[in-house]
């Protein structure tokens, strides 16, 4: 099959109704090619996780269609969706989500119980994955004894055990130190390049830009054009610290102007005396502090 592995058209997801209705994802359309690594970035609360949940057959859209490998998944029942997730999709979570009572090897093999070949057929693949991810020596260890990087590598092996066509990764480097995060990103890059497995990745981590084939920018539930500049530096009006306006998650509106903050403490101080900080704030234009 030569078409895109994932095609989403006019996806919308709303929560609540009437005055409390929130449009978390708003008319999003996208294609993901086979073997492509697509990063979805955007500020906190922009709808990234909701979008990935829908693309990963975990959440039904309010409207729109999603096709995985040519199959419209919005028409599938719960059983069909479970089967699809088990056989064609792999998930990698920010907080690893390993099953604490199972060993490393059993965690990796867990999804194989749900696949056609079963655990027996998956054992050689599990051994190869553990070898490739440098986890063979930790094969019988319990998750609580692993480092963060090791846990995430186990989660990656688990995601790959059923040889899925698609992997969804939600902030896979979010709980890792710099070195482990870099390692995980390179593994995901290799998975897409070497195995032809498409990876859709949600991240705040700027380093993903170095390995992703394509960056999608989600803001207020809709995909928008990514600005030419990789960063939009503005100053926190309270402490004066430089903050990236694209990825910052703490905002306040005052007299029609938008202010960005480095921390909740600065935001709270601003909200206590907005006029004081707004007057003294000098918000330089993005171009003035452009940075590569």
């Amino acid at each position: 099959m030569s078409g895109p592995i994932l095609r989403a058209e006019h996806l919308t997801k709303t929560f609540g109704s009437g005055n409390t209705e929130v449009r978390a994802v708003d008319d999003v359309s996208l294609d993901v090619a086979r073997g492509e690594l697509v990063a979805i970035m955007g500020p906190s609360g922009s709808g990234k996780t909701t979008l990935v949940s829908m693309l990963g057959a975990l959440l039904r859209p309010s409207s729109g269609t999603i096709a995985i490998d040519g199959v419209d998944i919005t028409t599938l029942g719960e059983t069909g969706l479970s089967r699809l997730r088990a056989q064609k999709i792999g998930f990698i979570f920010q907080s690893f989500n390993l099953l604490e009572v199972l060993s490393v090897e059993d965690n990796v093999l867990f999804p194989a119980h749900l696949a056609l070949g079963g655990v027996k057929a998956a054992r050689p693949r599990a051994a190869a994955l553990l070898e490739r991810l440098n986890l063979t020596h930790r094969r019988v260890a319990l998750p609580r004894t692993l480092s963060g990087g090791e846990k995430q590598r186990v989660a990656i092996a688990r995601a790959l055990i059923n040889q899925p066509r698609l992997i969804f990764a939600d902030e896979p480097t979010g709980n890792l130190d710099s070195q482990s995060g870099q390692e995980v990103m390179m593994i995901l890059h290799d998975i897409a390049r070497d195995q032809g497995c498409s990876v859709v990745l949600v991240s705040h981590d700027q380093r993903i830009e170095d390995v992703a084939d394509r960056i999608l920018w989600l803001e207020d539930g809709a995909l928008r054009d990514r600005k030419a500049e990789p960063h939009s530096w503005v100053r926190d009006p309270v402490c004066g610290m430089r903050v990236d306006g694209w990825t910052a998650s703490l905002f306040a509106e005052h007299h029609g102007r938008r202010y960005v903050f480095c921390s909740r403490r600065c935001l709270e101080r601003f909200e206590a005396e907005p006029d004081r900080y707004a007057e003294s704030a000098v918000q330089p234009s993005p171009s003035a502090e452009r940075s590569e």
């Binding site: 990963g56 479970s82 088990a86 999709i89 989500n97 099953l99 604490e100 867990f110 749900l114 688990r158």
Partner: peptide, 14 residues
């Protein structure tokens, strides 16, 4: 509950 959520996400049926 969290492990159940993970199992469901991985494709385990109710």
């Amino acid at each position: 509950e969290r492990e159940l959520a993970v199992m469901k996400a991985l494709g385990v049926r109710d």
